[in-house]
Nucleic acid binder design. Sequence first.
DNA 1: GAGTGGTCTAGACCACGAG
DNA 2: TCGTGGTCTAGACCACTCA
Lengths: 234, 234
Amino acid sequence: MTPTVPTLRDTIAEDLRTQITTGHLKSGDRLPSEPKLATHYKVSTPTVRQALALLQAEGLIEKTHGKGNFVRTPLRRITYTGGTGIPFAPDLQTTIRTTTVRARGHIRTLLKVPSNSPLTEFQCTTYEGETPRSVARIYIPRDLAPTARLASSSWPGGRDVDRTETQETVTARLPTPEEASALRISPTRTVLTITRIALNSTGRVLEAALLALPSDAADAVFTTHPTLKEETDR
Amino acid sequence: MTPTVPTLRDTIAEDLRTQITTGHLKSGDRLPSEPKLATHYKVSTPTVRQALALLQAEGLIEKTHGKGNFVRTPLRRITYTGGTGIPFAPDLQTTIRTTTVRARGHIRTLLKVPSNSPLTEFQCTTYEGETPRSVARIYIPRDLAPTARLASSSWPGGRDVDRTETQETVTARLPTPEEASALRISPTRTVLTITRIALNSTGRVLEAALLALPSDAADAVFTTHPTLKEETDR
DNA sequence: GAGTGGTCTAGACCACGAG
DNA sequence: TCGTGGTCTAGACCACTCA
């Protein structure tokens, strides 16, 4: 059903796609310029551009204004592991900026703290070489925040306090302009977002974290060992 | 930095967006036709269409060939809860088709079974009224599959066997053509995919599940209660 | 300055939905 | 049949990159 006739842009995209996947066009290669592709395929440039937009959405090519269209070097996928701090992979560097902010809006709701109560905000960016691979904002009530050992390996709001539960919500959406520029991706490329809150045994929220990762090169992995409660409460 | 000048399509999209969010245009309303919008904004129709494409990507409007562009009735978000069977929300109906297939390719790797070993495949679609909200393919080695009680509330591969670990990988990507038609979404709308495997205490894979949900109306929630092992192994 | 992609125009024709 | 959106054309001009 719905055997719709492939459009010109689809057939052009399909042709380029096979050239890429068969290795005819290699990683990092520059594609012919758009006018050249247009004359080659005997179509107008907008049609070529629509085909390229498809390949861009699939993550196969990268467009750079003034330089050309390039076969995308496949990014190694990075993995966010549930319950941990920030995405992890070998050879990732992380920069962290720490500021103090006042609780408001969504963050306040997540942390269940009064309005304007002081929070420590960690702005984390993970890099692979020069390429940003994830951004995170982590908020911790200031009376819980570690102060002097940010450079240590232990994570803020981490394992030294009793942390009994971590709730993580995963969604995909278009990036905010800030996220797009921080990750250096096009505003049309979706990001995988993770909203995480950590609770202690009294139900107090120890931490709220908002993470964003380019969805075409990121996975989030969660491993659950069912507890007795989960086994019985249904 | 990068205070790029907003383009025509951006300003048009922004105007329509505020009209929608302020309630000027209500849920289900038909937008003026594209030529009318073009004359109203004093641009050409392709420019209007680019603006509409942005709103479509954001999930704010729905385009229907031959009928018009409509403000999208915001879909209630559905939630997939980590470790469970399929997405859940009130008033969701589920259809399940069961077949027997032979293990091969990716599925075989996930289940760690020999090639061509028999599997029971559950093809699940979750509906909210007439609207499909999730699709799932669940594979279980046939010797583990429940046979006579599919209609019961217990889930295949479920809690009656010792299931000690569930690993779930969450990604976002463009839907396959099959997923797009099954979910009745445009092939350009990303889906949130969940790949889940369940292990028993011997490490045997009890189940492999592939789920896909439209990412603009779905969340995946994972709650982890750290075990002693997780606490200590770092 | 040469070459590239980004934006936009002002049309054309086709395909779909509904009366 | 009519109005709608979908596809496509053949240009124009601007903005960016690099030599």
